[in-house]
Computed example of a mutant assay.
Amino acid sequence: MNAIDIKNVRKVFRVGEEKVVALDDVSLEVKAGEVCCLLGTSGSGKSTLLNMMAGLEKPTKGIISIAGRRVDKMTEEQLAIFRQKEIGFVFQSYNLLTSLTALENVSLPLTFRGFSKKVREKHGKEILRAVGLEKYVTHKPTQMSGGQQQRVGIARAFVSKPPIVFADEPTGNLDSRTTEEVMNLILKIAKDNNQTLIIVTHDRSIAEYADKVVYILDGNIQKIETREERECTEE
């Protein structure tokens, strides 16, 4: 079963009098539980494709089905509810609320889904323990390092166990050692819960963690490479 189905998607932006083609007839399938990396340079269209999958932007034409539902046909209200239930996000810039503690930041998705404070705190503490931050429950973002803040961001994305998690340049602000720790952490949680993980990056070393790498250039998919194909090439 596919978690994501994209068929003949095209996205055109208007910049003044000009038309800029961000995506040009893109089709892609991602299986449930698969780790898929969208790899490309800045301006290649990879982030636009991610935004389409998440329903943050509408395609000019084409079909986008996530978890069996057409997100390209949803209203903004339907999309908001859909994202709360089906999708988690890990951002490059962490996107934590500085006035909230680690536990409060992590618990936000559960707040939107109507869980009681007791249940939110229970699940929040469990996921913070899983990412190695059980001692930082009451710390605010300004009291934590970049790597710790990203762990909070990861905990927030996974706390409600959404079927699909999008990670947009999740290690872009981290050093190489912390990058490896964060990637291993994301993959472990996703695999443990059989979640589909979509990683957007320009870093080829991050692509090594994926089951499938989608190479994107100038709004087009240049090639799709599976882990098995990569391993055969390396040999």
Score class of each variant (00 low, 15 high):
N2S: 13
I4Y: 08
I6G: 02
R14Q: 11
E17H: 08
E17K: 12
E17I: 00
E18M: 07
E18L: 08
E18V: 05
A22D: 12
S27K: 15
L28T: 14
L28K: 13
E29A: 13
K31Q: 09
K31Y: 05
V35D: 04
L38P: 09
L38A: 09
L39K: 06
L39I: 11
T41V: 00
G45C: 11
M52E: 10
L56E: 05
E57P: 02
E57F: 00
P59Y: 13
K61D: 15
G62C: 03
I63D: 12
I63R: 07
G68A: 07
R69A: 03
V71F: 09
V71T: 14
D72Q: 13
K73C: 15
E76D: 15
E77H: 10
E77W: 04
L79R: 13
F82S: 04
Q84C: 12
Y94S: 02
N95T: 08
S99Y: 11
S99V: 07
L100W: 10
A102S: 14
N105F: 12
N105H: 12
S107D: 04
S107P: 03
L108D: 00
F112M: 14
F115N: 10
K117G: 02
K117W: 11
K118E: 15
V119A: 12
K122E: 15
H123E: 15
K125Q: 14
L128V: 10
L128E: 06
R129G: 08
A130N: 02
V131R: 03
V131Y: 02
E134P: 04
E134L: 11
T138G: 01
P141F: 06
Q143D: 09
Q143Y: 04
M144I: 07
S145P: 06
G146V: 04
G147P: 02
Q149E: 03
G153N: 06
I154E: 03
A155V: 01
V159K: 14
S160D: 09
K161Y: 12
V165K: 05
V165T: 13
V165R: 05
E169I: 00
P170C: 03
T171P: 00
T171G: 00
G172Q: 00
N173C: 02
L174C: 03
D175H: 04
S176L: 06
S176R: 09
T178N: 01
N184K: 15
I189G: 02
N193I: 01
Q195P: 08
T196I: 09
L197D: 05
V200W: 01
T201E: 01
D203G: 01
I206T: 07
E208A: 11
K212T: 10
K212F: 07
V214F: 01
L217V: 14
L217A: 11
N220S: 15
I221Y: 07
Q222P: 03
Q222T: 13
I224M: 14
T226K: 06
T226N: 07
R227I: 04
R227M: 01
C232L: 06
